[in-house]
Design a protein around this nucleic acid. Structure first.
Length: 274
DNA sequence: AGACGTACCTGACCGC
DNA sequence: TGCGGTCAGGTACGTC
């Protein structure tokens, strides 16, 4: 599920419901996610008040009283839901209970997600975060900043944008979408995206992310209430998962093309993306 | 140093 | 109905 917009949607939902709440009990049903949960996680979290929910790329950052931070990554299939009935079955791996009765459930059937603990004062130096590229929605992210990151890169622009060291938070879907709106072929050499092309791409990245967050935001209430749904598939994609269908305003007839790059599906319009 | 393929894990879906 | 193959929103590792 989770690329930057989904994590941001989750962050907002959790912040609205759980900021200032105290964790009273932690249940770990399966500690073996992508890497083992910190053995002392339950002990560290129990009794702590949640001060704030942050995000870095696709990582959710739960800031705790006392300067501790719980880092959460949802992997491919991780979900967080509040106050939902237990529905994850064998895939509900961690449950946090709060002092007002709220229950936060983490489920992840593929177990590609992870959790770790860090200190707020040294968060940027944490191994999971220290190599990450710029936040695409932060003020400093623009054409020149992106161009510098892509400079001299020999790899296709599709692969470069999936690299979290280049830009934080993009995944397969939003890379496809951003390249479409920028009019750039996913096969283009990353290093050739400079100047006005980089400007267009930076704008397109911001546009697709903001748009998706707005769409996620519209389903935020549902998410918080019960269902755990993110409204993810309610989002209308221009090219992603639309092989052989027309892209918006497409007049080329051939429709959206699906290719495979570094083992992953890429969707694009060969006429409008160069 | 950096790029690629592959592995991790489970479920959904499709064709036979 | 059951089986095998393929695919899935992410990342890390080994290998060249």
């Amino acid at each position: 599920m989770p690329e930057l917009p989904e994590v941001e949607t989750v962050r907002r939902g959790l912040a609205a419901r759980l900021t200032g709440r105290r964790i009273t009990h932690v249940t770990v049903r399966r500690p073996d996610l992508r890497r083992p949960l910190p053995p002392d996680m339950g002990q560290v979290l129990t009794g702590r008040e949640v001060r704030d929910f942050g995000r870095r790329g696709k990582y959710l950052l739960v800031h705790l009283e006392g300067g501790g931070v719980l880092i959460v990554h949802l992997g491919m299939s991780g979900r967080l839901s509040i106050d939902a009935a237990p529905g994850g079955g064998a895939h509900e791996h961690v449950v946090l209970h709060f002092d007002d009765g709220a229950v936060l459930r983490y489920e992840d059937h593929r177990r590609f997600g992870l959790m770790d603990l860090a200190k707020a004062a040294r968060l940027e130096e944490h191994e999971l975060l220290r190599s990450m590229g710029p936040e695409p929605l932060a003020p400093g992210f623009d054409g020149p900043a992106l161009a510098r990151r892509l400079h001299a890169k020999d790899t296709p622009i599709k692969a470069a944008l999936l690299d979290q060291r280049v830009v934080a938070g993009l995944g397969n879907i939003y890379v496809c979408e951003a390249l479409f709106y920028a009019g750039l072929s996913p096969r283009r050499r990353a290093g050739s995206v400079q100047g006005r092309r980089a400007e267009r791409l930076a704008k397109a990245i911001r546009h697709v992310l903001e748009d998706a967050i707005a769409a996620g935001g519209s389903s935020l209430r549902d998410y918080v209430q019960a269902s755990g749904e993110l409204g993810y598939f309610q989002h209308r994609f221009a090219v992603y998962d639309r092989a052989d269908l027309p892209c918006p305003g497409c007049d080329c007839g051939a429709g959206v093309r699906r290719i495979v790059q570094s083992g992953r599906s890429t969707f694009y319009c060969a006429k409008r993306q160069r």
